[in-house]
Design a protein around this nucleic acid. Structure first.
Length: 285
DNA sequence: CGGGCTGTTGACTC
DNA sequence: AGAGTCAACAGCCC
């Protein structure tokens, strides 16, 4: 699950290794992952020199003197810094650098390798619409974002156009840390809950970011991230006891995705809403 | 062996 | 408007 901790780690590694390097040629084995025809893509980036590699949400942004190289890892995959003699078994694209280092890119299901013109990044249909990075949003802006919407809190936090970088893996622990149920209506969150959520976003993402991302993704040198299975609090731990209260963790359906929650620590509706429902019920009588 | 599950994203429907 | 479904293309688990 390449989400912010993994993507930010990859961007940092790539920047360290490739800033200043020149692309000699490209080999695209899966043209469907591109946003433009292969020939055009190769022509655009052949000979380009990498400036800085950064990230925005789940997108890796390679700034070159010829335009932007944009990479989205989809549901997972590898970006490996290899040599012609040590290629992985499987890859969808190769970016070959002048110094005989090859970047081998693989998505295990789907992913994007896009190009954007130098001054046209904001016009890219996906990158251009991204919201602020999840670790960069201010407490006031997060508060405003959530208090203005009647959508479920989980769907807002996962909406990349509002907040970039959180995905369906880290969301479980973030909401658990905040003691907020994923299906809570955003504008019913109390001031305390919003504060708690702000802190929990940082805690949930930074714990993994500091360790170079999750164990199920490899860094560019082929080594797994240091955020281990046992570092996950409740995500993917159905039936196991909640680390706070011991209640068995529940796996529930939340729209198209699953969520893991502690049914005791994360209540589906707020006390406020329960009170309002009671008042309404009594008034009907 | 077949079906259901899984980290993303956006287009489409009601 | 918001929520659900599906489809891009693999691999694992039961």
């Amino acid at each position: 699950m390449p989400e912010l901790p993994e993507i930010a780690s990859r961007a940092k590694e790539l920047n360290k290794e490739l800033a200043g390097s020149r692309i000699e040629s490209l080999e695209i084995l899966q043209p469907r992952c591109l946003n433009i025809p292969v020939e055009k893509f190769e022509r655009a980036l052949k000979g380009a020199r990498i400036g800085e590699v950064t990230h925005h949400g789940k997108w890796i942004l390679g700034n070159t003197d010829r335009g932007w190289l944009l990479l989205n890892m989809g549901m997972g995959g590898e970006v490996l810094l290899t040599t012609p003699g040590s290629l992985p078994k499987k890859y969808r694209a190769l970016i070959k650098f002048e110094d005989q280092r090859w970047l081998a890119i693989n998505f295990w299901w789907f992913g994007y390798l896009h190009f954007a013109e130098k001054d046209r990044l904001s016009e890219h249909p996906m990158v251009g619409k991204l919201g602020v990075n999840a670790l960069d949003i201010s407490k006031a802006d997060l508060r405003e974002m959530l208090s203005g919407q009647r959508k479920k809190v989980k769907s807002i936090l996962l909406d990349q156009s509002q907040l970039a970088g959180i995905g369906n893996a880290y969301i479980h622990d973030i909401l658990f840390l905040a003691k907020i149920h994923p299906l809570r209506v955003a504008n019913t969150l109390s001031s305390e809950e919003l504060d708690h959520l702000f802190k929990s976003i940082h805690k949930g993402l930074e714990t993994s970011l500091k360790k170079g991302g999750a164990f199920y993704e490899l860094n560019i040198y082929g080594k797994p991230g240091g955020f281990k299975q046992e570092d996950i609090l409740i995500g993917y731990r159905e039936g196991k006891p909640c680390p706070v209260c011991g209640t068995p963790i529940l796996k529930i359906k939340t729209g198209g995705t699953s969520s893991f929650i502690c049914p005791h620590c994360q209540e589906a509706i707020s006390h406020e809403e329960v009170r309002e429902m009671k008042i309404q019920f009594i008034s009907i009588l």
